[in-house]
């Protein structure tokens, strides 16, 4: 399925109190959609760490659902974070993996073993409570709401096609100020 369409499904299904963290191409595409104060566009990032920021937010805000839209290269860089998430019992955390098999932002070089990695098995093995896999847009669109509301931690493996020739994300503004606004939005 096209990666942007897969993301649009999450945009439509997220609840008004949900936090959504996006990184890499998911961040780029998210910024083209209507924004909310509880969106954390994780640009600039430390590659691989969107899931860790998500864990911290999920622990600090246990009554909110936290959805992390991550890239496969980023996930591979911090696979241990799946174990940390499960170990911490972050039941309100959803990791949505946009697996396009490439490092799209840097020009679509292949990841070390594209098509060979069973991310569902890794998530299950790390101790995730609910694990899903979708390759077809219609099936994902039909099930997106159900999967987001399952007991977590939840891992959703989305097999997507990379966009061709689209530049990567740019930061939407000074990160320090955005952090302050985001923190305030969580308090209100």
């Amino acid at each position: 399925m096209p990666e942007k369409d897969a993301l649009v499904a999450i945009h439509g299904a997220r609840g008004p109190r949900d936090v959504v963290i996006t990184t890499m191409c998911a961040a780029r595409d998210w910024m083209t959609l209507p924004q909310q104060p509880l969106d954390l566009v994780f640009v600039p990032s430390a590659m691989g760490h969107a899931t860790s920021v998500g864990l911290g937010l999920a622990l600090a805000q246990p009554d909110r659902r936290v959805i992390v839209c991550n890239g496969d290269g980023s996930m591979l860089m911090n696979l241990g974070s799946l174990v940390s998430i499960a170990g911490a019992g972050a039941r309100n955390l959803v990791v949505a993996l946009f697996d396009n098999g490439v490092y799209e932002v840097t020009g679509s070089q292949p990841t070390p073993a594209p098509g060979c990695v069973d991310f569902a098995a890794i998530a299950r093995g790390a101790g995730f409570e609910s694990v899903f896999e979708f390759s077809h847009l219609e099936s994902w669109q039909t099930n997106v709401h159900r999967t987001l509301t399952c007991p977590g931690p939840t891992f959703i493996w989305l097999r997507v096609e990379p966009a061709v020739g689209v530049p990567g994300p740019r930061s939407p503004g000074p990160a320090g100020e955005r952090a302050r606004r985001f923190r305030d939005a969580l308090r209100s």
């Binding site: 954390l40 430390a46 691989g48 760490h49 860790s52 920021v53 998500g54 864990l55 911290g56 937010l57 999920a58 622990l59 600090a60 805000q61 911090n78 241990g80 974070s81 174990v83 940390s84 170990g87 911490a88 952090a179 985001f182 923190r183 969580l186 308090r187």
Partner: peptide, 25 residues
């Protein structure tokens, strides 16, 4: 509360999320 992570880079980013969420990590 103690939060155990697998590597130290994670620790800073988990702390970042906690701080953004209003906690004092």
């Amino acid at each position: 509360r103690l939060v155990r992570v697998c590597r130290e880079g994670e620790a800073w980013e988990v702390a970042a999320g906690l701080h953004l969420g209003g906690a004092s990590p």
